[in-house]
Nucleic acid binder design. Structure first.
Length: 567
RNA sequence: CGGGCUGUGGCGCAGCUUGGCAGCGCGCCUGCUUUGGGAGCAGGAGGUCGUCAGUUCAAAUCUGACCAGCCCGACCA
């Protein structure tokens, strides 16, 4: 491609509405343009990279016996009703009626449709199968952000495995885990597999691939010693026990005027330190009230409420609801003597005595609470959010807490979809059994952006060679000089002849403009051809990543560059 | 959905307080000079000032409604 004829609209200034580095560079480098919130056009450079990312994914999927499909994006809503996901995906599901008045959805993912096709599987002899496609997804995210990292229309490779039993699923799951790690390596992304919550996908076990980044939206805990890693939504930790007096005295209500918070009660005369208080939260779980109890110094992890209780809709109760339910305001709540409302308590409260909590009367608290004696706990759950530096649940060493971008997610679905959709086969005993499924997702554009987050410097993008839109840019210093241009053209033709993707910067621009643009868009190798070098029979090759510059003879330039690229 | 901010040429912004010719930098076009790290001079093109309504002799500027975008939170594979 000749740059003079290419549409590469680079910008000198950062766009005003971007924060994330990858967003700024994708826009400035002429890779993408925004059409509306969370919806982007891929410009030619962006499309080239997208293609390469997809090619890598396709290769790795084919290598683990994947068969490529292309499933539709417009689905009858009825099939989503059957798996209950019209409800669990409600907020992000784009749905409307077609012209005949039939309800349809724009697909946010394809479990239902792949499972439907899998209905044609009839015998265990046909299993295992591994199917995938690379397709557009629509998710009406309430808050798109950070350029391509969180959007409403995007491309995802999603694969689905079909097995006769859990053992087969385990094999496919492992295959994917390994394939994903190879993909991320090729994309220049360091991703850690972590245990995660399955959320709205259904199923049991899931593993997310996390790339550490300050702009990430997830929090991950990781143990450098033993390798334990988990999403904070699911992570646990070892924390030291608190010493309580051996026995609680009699319950005692006492006045606490103006005390509304854990911190207030800590400094209040006759109060209690945070880890000897019980924090009582009122939540609404699928429309029903529930009390959540935590140690005073612990924070609630909402996803754990969902996972532990099976509720799909979880929200804090409103002020008025709390007052009507318990007769007091948040800050004076407690579970002592409460019945008729489910009480979910965090494990850290188990066996605790002489605790202090609210009395369900404003300005009053209760001391000497013995959890086992005084509170009717419906169910003990892990509800607590892990904090940085707490002990690893496996080895006890301090945990690291960091922010991360979710670059891939794989799920063991089990029979979550097969059962409601009736996807069964006959097993070797002639018995009808549901197929055991897995699903495995990786976002194409999100990974493009993540790769930039991980591979850039103050001048621009530093693409890994394998996904760069071009491998080489030939920067012609004086395109109006015939000898220079002829030399550049010859090198350009030679490299293309070897299958090297080359961009020829033949624009009538100052050298500085060309160098800066080449660095901004992140081409791995720049070859500078100018009259000064030609006079000595030399040209210059610069490595984008290291900045290292090498003078090479023009006569052997094509060979040397091909050698650098390994072609 | 709650809170904050912003919509003025392709990009970045000023002008709005106090209503009165729509501006600046970059980019773009033409010409000349220049050319190994974002050139100089000269000439030029390009904007229903987010939309609609209102106030006014007069609205980018004041008022209202709406729309869009960004940030924080909620939410989220």
């Amino acid at each position: 491609m000749r740059w003079s004829q290419a549409f590469i609209p680079t910008l000198r200034d950062d766009p005003a509405d971007s924060e994330a580095v990858s967003h700024k560079l994708l826009v400035r480098g002429g890779y993408v343009r925004q059409l509306m919130s969370g919806i982007y056009s891929m410009l030619p450079l962006g499309q080239r990279v997208r293609d390469k990312v997809m090619a890598i994914i396709r290769e790795e999927m084919n290598a683990i016996n994947g068969q490529e499909f292309l499933l539709p994006n417009l689905h009858p809503r009825e099939i989503w009703d059957r798996t209950g996901r019209t409800v669990s995906f409600a907020e992000v599901l784009m749905t409307f009626d077609d012209n005949k008045g039939s309800p349809v959805v724009l697909s946010p993912t394809h479990e239902e449709i792949f499972a439907t096709v899998a209905g044609e599987l009839t015998s265990y002899k046909q299993l295992p199968q591994m199917w995938y496609h690379i397709q557009t997804k629509f998710r009406d995210e309430p808050r798109p952000k950070s350029g391509l990292l969180r959007v409403r229309e995007f491309t995802m490779k999603d694969s689905y495995s079909f097995d006769i039993d859990e053992a087969g699923l385990d094999v496919q799951f492992d295959n994917h885990r390994n394939a994903y790690l190879r993909i991320f390596e090729r994309l220049g992304i360091t991703a850690v597999p972590v245990a995660a919550s399955s959320g709205a996908m259904g199923g049991k076990e899931s593993v997310e691939f996390m790339m550490q980044s300050d702009i990430g939206e997830d929090s991950v805990v990781h143990c450098a010693n033993c390798g334990y890693a988990a999403n904070r939504e699911k992570a646990t930790s070892a924390i030291p026990d608190v010493d309580d007096p051996p026995e609680s005295g009699a319950l005692e209500v006492f006045d606490t005027p103006g005390v509304r918070t854990i911190a207030d009660l800590e400094v209040f005369e006759g109060g209690a330190v945070a880890d000897r208080q019980i924090k009582t939260l009122v939540y609404v779980l699928d429309g029903e009230f529930a009390l959540l109890l935590l140690r005073g110094d612990h924070a609630l992890e909402e996803q754990k409420v969902q996972d532990g209780t099976g509720a799909s809709e979880v929200r804090p109760a409103h002020e008025e609801e709390i007052r009507a339910l318990l007769g007091a305001d948040a800050g004076s709540l407690g579970a002592v003597g409460v019945d008729g409302i489910p009480v979910y308590a965090d494990h850290a409260l188990s066996g605790r005595s002489s605790m202090t909590t609210g009395a369900n009367e404003n300005d009053k608290h209760i001391r000497n609470v013995d959890v086992a004696r005084d509170i009717a706990v419906t169910k003990w759950l892990d509800l607590r959010s892990v904090e940085d530096g707490e002990g690893c649940p496996n080895c006890g060493e301090p945990l690291n807490l960091f922010k991360a971008i979710e670059v891939g997610h794989i799920f063991k679905l089990g029979t979550f979809y097969a059962e409601p959709l009736g996807v069964n086969v006959l097993d070797e005993h002639g018995k009808t059994v549901p197929i055991v499924m897995g699903s495995y997702g990786i976002g194409v554009e999100r990974n493009m952006a993540a790769s930039i987050e991980a591979n850039h410097d103050d001048k621009g993008i530093v693409w890994p060679l394998e996904i760069a839109p071009f491998a080489v840019v030939i920067t012609v210093i004086r395109p109006d000089d015939a000898a220079t241009m002829d030399t550049a053209e010859a090198l350009y033709a030679n490299l293309w002849g070897r299958g090297v993707e080359v961009l020829l910067d033949d624009r009538d621009e100052r050298p500085g403009v060309k160098f800066n643009d080449a660095e901004l868009i992140g081409i791995p190798y720049r070859v500078t051809v100018g009259p000064r070098g030609i006079a000595e029979g030399m040209c210059e090759v610069v490595d984008r990543r290291t900045g290292e510059s090498t003078e090479i003879a023009i006569d052997s330039a094509a060979d040397e560059i091909a050698g650098l690229l390994g072609v």
